[in-house]
């Protein structure tokens, strides 16, 4: 249950093609994250799978059945929205049982499922409150509760954490991951935050302008990005991309080197520049370095104890074995 296949799916709004022909297979039980900058079509893709938008052409199969023209409710999918989309006039209990009520389940069955879901999500004490009386994190849990009681074949999450503050976001991220481990149900998760993608996904789909740039596990994407876009998008701080002479030395149009793969010294190294900003996170320190003649800024990530001040001249040494090479089209070489 929960295998979703997209075959040459396209979507046009008027004359604008938002999704050019796209093929994608999501295996049963996988946690798949669609990630990309805003406007890349990731939410549209999710809504196509949900059935909230029609595909312009192509086929969507859910568990080997053609679901292209099925109404959203008939697809057996549950969705958690960015704004939570809770029914403000219903209690938490009513919110969670709404899909069951619509499916015509018996009262006893409804009660049983809502009790179970509430336990899993720590909502037992809030069942008789209205959404308006809950905190952001609790509302998010209610939205998830409403999704899990349906026992869908897949969950769809549309940027579910973007309305939460940073601390809560980390907590909810873990909760959703745990939930996935426990339920073993397919989950499709849309986000613009590559950290969420890296930490949660079994498989990441990187999108840009409706095109799939790369599909792979978080580490695959990290270690061998298929092009400069993916290279720049995945990883924090961002990979340093260097064009020109220095790249030519490596036989490439562009080379990429991750901040954590550069070492810093006060005395020697092939590259040099001045520290403009140093960010101390405790465990790590990020230096932003100008004036290297390679790129506007080179970012370096080193151990927390290393200390240089604003204006210090530093020397950088990249690790040659982890340099990424790209050709003039931005595609990976080798």
């Amino acid at each position: 249950m929960g295998r979703i296949v997209l075959e040459s799916v396209t979507k046009k709004f008027g004359n604008t093609e938002v999704i050019p022909p796209l093929d994608l297979t999501i295996e049963e039980g996988e946690f798949v994250v669609f990630v990309g900058p805003s406007g890349c079509g990731k939410s549209t893709l999710l809504r196509l799978i949900a059935g909230l938008e029609d595909v312009s052409s192509g086929v969507i199969k859910i568990d080997d059945n053609d679901a292209t023209d099925l109404a959203p409710a008939k697809r057996g999918l549950a969705m958690v929205f960015q704004s939570y989309a809770l029914y403000p006039h219903m209690s938490v209990r009513k919110n969670i049982t709404f899909p069951l009520r619509m499916a015509g389940l018996s009262k006893a069955e409804q009660d049983e499922r809502v009790t179970k879901a509430a336990e899993v999500l720590n909502l037992s004490d809030y069942l008789d409150r209205r959404p308006g009386q809950l905190s952001g994190g609790q509302r998010q849990r209610v939205a998830i509760g409403r999704a899990i009681v349906r026992e869908p074949s897949a969950f769809l999450f549309d940027e579910p954490l973007s309305n939460l503050d940073a601390a809560l976001r980390v907590g909810m991220r873990l909760e959703i991951s745990e939930l996935h481990k426990r339920l073993e149900t397919t989950m499709i998760y849309v986000t613009h935050d590559q950290v969420e993608a890296m930490t949660m996904a079994d498989k990441i789909v990187v999108l840009r302008a409706g095109n799939i740039e790369q599909v792979g596990s978080p580490l695959e994407l990290y270690h061998s990005p298929r092009n400069t876009f993916v290279a720049g998008f995945i990883g924090s701080p961002k990979m340093n991309l260097i064009d020109g002479e220095e790249a030519a030395k490596y036989g490439a149009h562009t080379i990429g080197i991750r901040p954590e793969h550069i070492s810093v010294s006060g005395s020697e190294g092939p590259w040099s520049g001045k520290v403009v900003v140093s960010e101390h996170l405790g465990s790590d320190t990020f230096f932003h370095i100008h004036g290297t003649g390679l790129a506007d800024t080179i970012t370096v990530r080193v151990d927390g104890e290393v200390n240089f001040k604003y204006g210090d001249r530093v020397y950088l040494t990249p690790r040659d074995d982890v340099i990424h090479k790209f050709d003039a089209e931005g595609l990976r070489i080798g």
Binding site: A50, P72, L77, M79, A85, Y87, F98, M102
Partner: peptide
């Protein structure tokens, strides 16, 4: 009224009649 709430109802299996009767109308009272 945010459209997402009505979409949520649709995902939850509400027919158009249910959507208007149980979700939209009470919210718009």
């Amino acid at each position: 009224i945010p459209g997402e709430i009505l979409e949520a109802a649709r995902m939850d299996g509400a027919s158009l009649k249910d959507e208007i009767l149980y979700v939209l109308t009470p919210m718009a009272i």
